[in-house]
Write a protein that binds this DNA or RNA. Structure first.
Lengths: 224, 224
DNA sequence: TAGATTGTTAATCGATTAACAATC
DNA sequence: TAGATTGTTAATCGATTAACAATC
């Protein structure tokens, strides 16, 4: 097999390539060289070629890459040629927003059902899917082919649900809870820690302010 | 100044340290060694010490680190001792969910107003903040001290709004739109590309399936 | 003091960039 | 064929890990 042992650094860049190539394709750009793409994306041409060559040669010497072909190939690498059935765990604000977020559906990601502890929501619809009791998750997964569980519940709940899910035939968890989850190797986990992201932004704000206040030390400027 | 030139790798780990230390603190753990923390977090003790020492010595030989002190120091590094005023740009599902997400407020991040192109929303309230016309963003920012604009609008709109914001006295953009933004150096940008995240998960699902189907090549198993 | 654990230097590992031969 | 650009090897750079002296 060739797809193994590819670094997270490379994989992390694939969706961005995919995004840019999709735009180029839509603009009708038929071919693109690593150098042109490099300018668009602000990364080195060398890195682009190295990244692509982890998965085999998609280009042609003297020509470059066919935009649409490359786009499709990266899509396959990312598994976007498969359909994915998802369930929502936690039908709160964030969860509901994700269900209503059509973009995923276009890429073959379908929400099939939602689960919540709040009895008041049982039987209610969210953008066409039904909310069921949290207790029934395991049964639902076993009866329906579910690939991904999307966790949009508070920390404490998430850990408990992860325990239940660890025995279910799902393939992956998309985790929005503010906690790391321990799961068997066969269940892939991708974390979206929004508050971590906001903290990084906060760090950058502070860093920039300190940097520029040092850069102009003799300027009496806006010091309180 | 000492805070400069610290790699993204290190900064990216700070929020996670902060999270773990907060939990330990809440559990009443007074001191912790790099080795203990290393076991909790599944990273090397060496990395932990290296990371902390980018910002100065927070520990004590023979003792370890004082949990609460370290937690507070990392908080300061992350700029969490400052208050941040935010505006929401795009009062759709995702945006509304973020405004209602209380956790940010606890950390000093306050939503002050929302903006949208949809006239039907003007004057409406979302979790206590008012929705204004998109056009009025620049004026609003100039009249109120806004630090962060949170972009939860579609791609095309985001690029245009970024152009407007690039002339406004804001410090940062938290970007949920599916596009990269070009902004002056003084405005920090943090991207949350949800679909990129979902694609990485999709990649991992596929990789694991291929890997395990190769591992057991003589098993007739579940091949269609 | 002896034991523990940091802060820090040195060694290793991996990722990025540069260079160039292969080839369309 | 000549020119262009890939695929790939080699060189460089940076990040992680190991080791240990400093010191509480």
């Amino acid at each position: 097999m060739d797809i193994k042992n590819i670094s997270q650094a490379v994989i992390g860049r694939l969706p961005r390539y995919y995004r840019y190539l999709g735009e180029l394709k839509d603009e009708g750009v038929e071919r693109i060289s690593s150098q042109e793409l490099s300018k668009e994306m602000h990364v080195t041409a060398s890195q682009i070629r190295q990244d692509f060559n982890h998965f085999g040669g998609f280009g042609q010497q003297g020509y470059g890459y066919n935009t649409e072909y490359l786009y499709n190939e990266i899509g396959k690498i990312l598994g976007l040629d498969q359909k994915h059935n998802m369930i929502l765990v936690g039908a709160g604000n964030l969860g509901s927003a994700l269900v209503r977020y059509m973009n995923f559906r276009n890429r073959g990601f379908f929400f099939k059902a939602a689960f919540d502890i709040n009895e008041a929501l049982y039987g209610k619809q969210i953008a066409g899917i039904t909310v069921y009791p949290l207790d029934s998750i395991a049964d639902y997964i076993r009866e329906n082919e579910i690939d991904i569980a999307v966790l949009t519940i508070p920390k404490a709940g998430a850990v408990k649900v992860a325990e239940v899910l660890s025995t279910c035939p799902i393939k992956a968890i998309w985790n929005f809870a503010h906690t790391d989850l321990e799961l068997p190797e066969r269940i892939q986990v991708e974390n979206v820690h929004l508050s971590d992201s906001l903290m990084r932004l906060s760090y950058e704000i502070r860093r920039y302010e300190e940097e520029s206040s040092v850069k102009t030390p003799n300027k009496p400027a806006h010091r309180k």
